[in-house]
Design a protein around this nucleic acid. Structure first.
Lengths: 250, 250
DNA sequence: TGCGGAGAAATTGTATACCTGATGGGGCAT
DNA sequence: ATGCCCCATCAGGTATACAATTTCTCCGCA
């Protein structure tokens, strides 16, 4: 199957959004993008429609497209969906997991333990290790939704993860919660413990326990994320002037 | 906001799919549709992309679009999603419901009781009453997801309901389960009882009870639907010749 | 008679020109 | 000076022409 220009445009724009190169609210104009990508406006429009249904872009008729900006309310709702779907995935995973699935989980768990200990031991948190830790965390969650053996569920949860990453991701200082390193270290140990409990319940083949453990884990993640986000929103309202607004103040 | 042609095309095609006028597997060719709707191919293509992301249409590059045909496996997975999301909705509803929400639920419940009794009393099931009952059933479920006060959740569940309706809906004799009227009457009473339990738990403001009741209800629905569908699939494989195939046999 | 390939037909994907609606700025009236 | 209205500009929506690809068909050949 020959690749088609719509897909090229889709990948191009999606990548920039995930990079943070196009931040939330950034306008996406078809002509400009078509020039940048080297195709015509038609496949760009197709790509934007696709991205809209992924939840990464919002399009208003005749007013153009822009990178999706999420309100705190919408963010909460999205977290709720993750809560419902991922705990269900854990339930299924406890029934459907294969030996291969369990090995993958154990592997990411071990890697996370190692990285976490390294971070806790170090005085300063180096970004590469943090990023690696984040990757392994995602890998663990993916291992679980894969174990659930439901393509639809997997697709849906992955979509939510992606959107989550965009709206809360590119914020500078995302993980610099104000409590200081000790609190973050404690949180890291807690995450590991949660993952261990989930893994153990799935390995035992106990769906209810797996679900409960996942529910607690996600709830914990959500609480932190929402706290961070409402904090960021508060900071934003403390200095509500954007670069553009400032230029009017001269 | 002025309506745009893409939306016209979207509504046109969507309606036909939901009607059953375009059954699963029916090819959707852009030129033909554009002529029928009275617009050009461009907005038709837009509409098809949109419908694809709704899960009603499947598009393969260069091979065209067709009404989504679901395998039994996919159908099971979709039911799983409904299970996870609707029981979560019931949980939220027990926390967030207003007096208005409760009234709406009670209303549909009462109407369903009345319609159900009428059907059970009658010797023959008349289609209009059956349809009304179906509508009220959907209305009850919508009342619950509305009570949950999460737009995203509502949107997602409605989408699943729609897709569900298309893949299992237009089958003629959808509700003519082979057990005869007595069994169907029993099932109807059971559905009412389930709804009553859910409504009561939500009215009491007991999230866990509401969720449990909804889980049982959905599981019941799913079991019946999957039984019916695998039966239909079996029948289909028993006489695999479509009208078109038959025309070759002359 | 069955199979394979070349070419024709059909259909999708892409580019582009044109149309329509939205936005902002300048001029006019108060 | 201020406020309003009109029009110029711009960007998105639509139609259509064209290119690319798949499929169908028909013919020749084994």
């Amino acid at each position: 199957m020959k690749t088609v220009n719509s897909d090229v445009a889709y990948d191009y724009i999606r990548k920039r959004i995930l990079n943070g190169e196009y931040p939330p609210g950034h306008p996406l104009m078809t002509y400009e993008l078509s020039r940048a990508i080297g195709v015509s406006r038609t496949p760009v429009r197709d790509a934007l429609r696709q991205l809209e249904s992924d939840g990464l872009v919002s399009i208003r008729a005749r007013l153009g497209a822009s990178v999706k900006k999420m309100s705190l309310k919408e963010f909460r709702e999205m977290c709720g969906l993750r809560f419902a779907l991922e705990s269900y995935a854990a339930y299924l995973a406890a029934q459907e997991r294969t030996g291969e699935d369990l090995r993958e989980m154990a592997l990411t768990l071990e890697t996370m333990r190692r990285l976490s200990e390294r971070l806790i031991a170090a005085k300063k948190e180096d970004k590469p290790t943090l990023d690696q830790l984040r990757v392994e965390d995602v890998r663990f969650h993916i291992a679980i939704i894969t174990s659930a053996k439901s393509e639809l569920l997997k697709q849906e949860v992955l979509r939510l993860h992606i959107v989550n990453r965009v709206v809360s991701g590119p914020t500078p200082g995302q993980h610099n919660s104000p409590e200081g390193k000790a609190a973050r270290d404690a949180r890291r140990r807690e995450v590991i413990r949660s993952h261990e409990k989930i893994h153990e319940a799935i390995a035992r083949g106990n769906p209810v326990a797996a679900k409960d453990a996942m529910e607690r884990h996600i709830q914990d993640i959500i609480d932190t994320a929402i706290r961070d986000m409402s904090l960021a929103e508060h900071q934003a309202s403390a200095r509500p002037l954007t670069e553009e607004e400032l230029s009017y103040a001269t």
